[in-house]
């Protein structure tokens, strides 16, 4: 039984990796402007999507149809995970969380179809992008909650005296990253990625003239980047100072710091290359990884950091 549950955890981890890949493929669709290369849904040029001949996967169809294919596989794996959870997982709330992941992936598929049928309205496409990140976090949570270390109990750490408790700080950081991803998705789907075409200045100034909504959204995304980077540096420095020996906290914090540096570099490259496909798409994927890492850190911080260890142990006993 224990062996099977480890397999369940590994499968959840595998699904999280598949989801990251799916986010990359979805990013490719937008970067290559292929979102409407397949005008019908759920069919593909009238074919059942699974019988659409590979020889016809040309031009933008390759990206859009490929995205649908990978999404279907992720959807199928989510069904498998949910069924597996309901058969083997003892904790009801984890089973229901997997059901929520399944609901999210179904809604995500419907939103994907809706945005194609409605010719990519900004709000539907943005919602589609945001739900992708939410689903990604849900799968990460499932992988965390099914991990042996979580089930056996993470090591408890006494909270250090800080102006902002670590848990609160992590939650704030994750919320900031998520809001930043919403802004990023909005910017992408408004086609505002080059509304401010220079970097690090904005139209040669520190604050650009706000002559259009696209410039406002783009600049908000840059301001968001500064806020997110600051929050991540704050979180990392807090952990490095007070929880350095807690590898379950330190490692994701360090990873998050590295990822946000890479993220800023990718954002700058996307502008300098006039939204070249791969830097821009890598920016989308890396953004998801920043969120995922921050979310993982938040889960661990909430589970590990306690005010009074002895009381926690007593209550556990």
């Amino acid at each position: 039984m224990r062996h099977e549950n480890l397999a369940l955890h590994r499968f959840a981890l595998f699904l999280a990796c598949c989801t990251a890949f799916l986010i990359f493929v979805g990013g490719l669709v937008t970067s290559t402007e292929s979102g409407l290369a397949v005008p019908d849904w759920p069919t593909t040029y009238g074919w059942n999507m699974f019988t659409f001949p590979y020889s016809m996967w040309v031009g933008g169809i390759f990206y859009e149809h490929g995205h649908r294919y990978v999404a279907s596989i992720v959807g199928f794996f989510t069904v498998v995970l949910t069924v597996w959870m309901w058969m083997r997982e003892k904790r009801a709330w984890v089973r229901w969380l997997s059901t929520a992941a399944l609901a999210a992936v179904i809604i995500q598929g419907l939103l994907g179809g809706l945005t194609v049928r409605l010719l990519l309205p900004t709000w539907v496409s943005t919602l589609h992008a945001c739900l992708a990140q939410t689903y990604f976090c849900t799968v990460i949570a499932l992988a965390v909650f099914t991990s042996p270390e979580w089930k056996h109990g993470l090591p408890l750490v006494k909270a250090r005296t800080q102006s902002v408790p670590l848990q609160t700080l992590c939650i704030m950081t994750t919320a900031a990253v998520y809001l930043q991803l919403i802004l990023g998705a909005l910017m992408r789907h408004m086609d505002a990625g080059l509304a401010i075409p220079d970097f690090p200045l904005a139209m040669g100034q520190i604050i650009p003239p706000f002559t259009s909504g696209k410039i406002v959204v783009h600049f908000a995304h840059r301001v968001g980047a500064v806020i997110v980077a600051s929050m991540i540096i704050w979180t990392f420095s807090t952990i490095a100072r007070s929880y350095r020996h807690e590898r379950l906290l330190f490692r994701p914090a360090l990873a998050m710091l590295v990822l946000v540096i890479v993220q800023i570099a990718l954002g700058a490259t996307a502008i300098w290359t006039a939204k070249a496909v791969y830097p821009t798409t890598a920016h989308v994927l890396n953004g998801a990884l920043v969120l995922g890492t921050s979310f993982l850190l938040t889960l661990r911080a909430c589970a590990m950091v306690v005010m009074d260890i002895s009381r926690e142990y007593r209550s556990a006993v």
Binding site: P42, T43, V83, M87, I106, G109
Partner: peptide, 25 residues
Amino acid sequence: KRTILLGALLLAVALAGACGGGNDD
């Protein structure tokens, strides 16, 4: 109960996959 719930979930997924459709001529 779990079996029924699983069946319902699978049905929902199948319906989601099958709905909509048709190519506009």
